[in-house]
Structure formats: structure tokens, C-alpha cells
């Protein structure tokens, strides 16, 4: 069974992000990393390979040149090979554009099961897995907290506010996983070194049979119109108890409609 894991190289969440004139994140000005949420998917794939369920694990990313760092990180955790779709024309793509590139690349790589994180830690849309499923015409399972695979299907546990569902999905399928599946292993140094020797295939839009006007900033269905920094946190109200502390707290909460 071949598993393809969709991973995203995202700007470091704790870093200060800067924005380019077109209001996309200035990726050169900020450290990047393999999206933490995708690490869970990488770990699940590595475990399925260790269990002998998966015979081949491929990591697929769409991103700038530096995104290979994210692929190397994934390859240090497990997997065999990686595919990096890199093309300047992809810059500024919306989810529709990204899912199109991914779907075309997946057709090239082939797959039985596609795994990915529940969302990216930058855009946080959580929509790409569904779009990829639609484009490929395959089954989808989202927000899996646990997953197991047999020859022809994947069974996932979905925790919702009202119920825990157990869903069996026929393969081929795409499944997004949550942090409930378990933290990714901390790769040993020898695994990091070993990852440098694993092959990464680079693909361009032309390789995928796509033209520049189908994707990218110009073709995006959504555009960022304004960016402003989050206002600084303001100091909270400190109430010194002079005997009326309790009622002051109650007033404070009542003013804001909490009680």
C-alpha cells in the first residue's frame, strides 16, 4: 500500500511575520518549519510503515524552495521519498489553487491512502483535504483522532462535540488527522542524517500539465485586502481588596455580561 502524506512548510508560528507588498507572508523574512499539525500525519504514516501496512510512504509538498527543509524533517521521522512542487507561478495561490496542484501531483505519484494534518498552522483553513478529495473523486475522512488500516479500507475515530464516531472509509481515500493521534517522534541524529540521503523529486507546473494562469495570486478566488498587527495586550484590571473586592469582581463581570 502506498501512502502519500501532504505536508506544508509554514512560517514559524512564534516568529514575527512580515508581509510582502501583495499582502502575502514574506516567506524569506521569517523562519519556516514543517507544520506541526502535519507532523501528526507524518508520524501516522511512519507507524503504518513500521507495522508493515504501508509499503511505501511519500511526502508531498507545494511551496517555495526552502520547503525542502520541511520535507527533510518529515523524512527524518520516516518515509521513503518526497515530492516537492515548486514554481514561482504558484505564489499566492488560494486553497482552490493549492488543491488543484496537489491533486495533479497525486495523480503523478499514485496513492492508496492520502494523509494530512487537520489544518495548516498559517492559513488554518482546514479545507484543502476536502477539495483534494473532490478533485480526485475519492473518499474522505476528516479530523481523525485515531486511524487503522486494513487492505481495502481505513477506519477512523472522529471526536465531535456531541459524539464519537467510528467511520470506515473504502480506499483510495484522503484522511486528515488531529493531534489526538499522538505526537511525532523526536528523530535521532542518525535519522536526520539519513533523511539527507532520501530522494526528493522536484516538479514544476509544466510537469503537472498546469498553466500559470490556473493558479497563483492572480487566479486566487480569495485575496487578503488588509493586514494589521494584533493590538498589544493591555494590562488587566487589578482590584485590591479593601473589603469590597468581592462586589467589585462581581460588578466587573456583570458589566461585561458574564453574570
Amino acid at each position: 500500500m502506498k501512502i502519500v502524506v501532504l505536508v506544508k512548510y509554514v512560517p514559524e508560528p512564534t516568529a514575527t511575520w512580515k508581509f510582502a507588498p501583495d499582502l502575502t507572508v514574506d516567506r524569506a523574512g521569517v523562519e519556516g518549519r514543517l507544520s506541526e499539525l502535519d507532523e501528526y500525519a507524518v508520524e501516522q504514516a511512519a507507524q503504518l510503515a513500521e507495522k508493515g501496512v504501508a509499503s511505501e510512504v511519500v511526502f508531498l509538498t507545494v511551496g517555495p524552495a526552502k520547503a525542502t527543509e520541511g520535507l527533510r524533517k518529515a523524512l527524518a521521522i520516516g518515509g521513503n521519498t518526497a515530492v516537492h512542487v515548486v514554481d514561482d507561478a504558484i505564489h499566492g495561490s488560494c486553497a482552490l489553487g493549492t488543491s488543484l496542484v496537489l491533486a495533479k501531483a497525486l495523480e503523478k505519484t499514485g496513492y492508496d491512502l492520502i494523509l494530512t494534518g487537520m489544518a495548516s498552522t498559517d492559513a488554518e483553513l482546514s479545507i484543502v483535504p476536502q477539495m483534494v478529495a473532490d478533485r480526485l473523486g475519492i473518499n474522505q475522512g476528516t479530523f481523525a483522532g485515531e486511524l487503522s488500516v486494513d487492505g481495502s479500507s481505513v477506519t477512523i475515530r472522529r471526536d465531535t462535540d456531541v459524539a464519537t464516531e467510528r467511520v470506515t472509509i473504502a480506499l483510495p481515500a484522503i484522511v486528515s488527522v488531529t493531534d489526538q493521534t499522538g505526537e511525532a517522534r523526536y528523530p535521532a541524529f542518525k535519522a536526520i542524517m539519513g533523511a539527507k540521503k532520501k530522494p526528493i523529486t522536484t516538479m514544476s507546473l509544466a510537469d503537472l500539465g498546469l498553466s500559470a494562469d490556473q493558479v497563483g495570486w492572480a487566479a486566487a478566488s480569495t485575496k487578503v485586502v488588509d493586514v494589521a498587527p494584533t493590538p498589544a495586550r493591555t494590562a488587566g484590571t487589578i482590584i485590591t481588596d479593601d473589603g469590597t473586592g468581592g462586589s467589585q469582581v462581581a460588578d466587573f463581570l456583570a458589566d461585561r455580561g458574564f453574570i
Binding site: 514559524e12 512564534t14 523526536y186 535521532a188
Partner: peptide, 29 residues
């Protein structure tokens, strides 16, 4: 380095150092 064997909870600190540059993971900003 070779076995990746250490008390699990210390992995949080290591990840924070890698990604945020400080043990708490708060980041340079």
C-alpha cells in the same frame, strides 16, 4: 543522538529550542 532515547517531557524543550529559540517556545518576538 543515536537512539533518540531520553525522558519524553524533555522533548518539548528540545522542540521549542529548535523552533522558537527558547525553552518555553515563546519565540523571539
Amino acid at each position: 543522538l543515536m537512539e533518540s532515547a531520553f525522558p519524553e517531557e524533555a522533548g518539548i524543550m528540545l522542540r521549542n529550542l529548535e523552533h522558537a529559540g527558547d525553552p518555553w517556545g515563546l519565540g523571539a518576538s
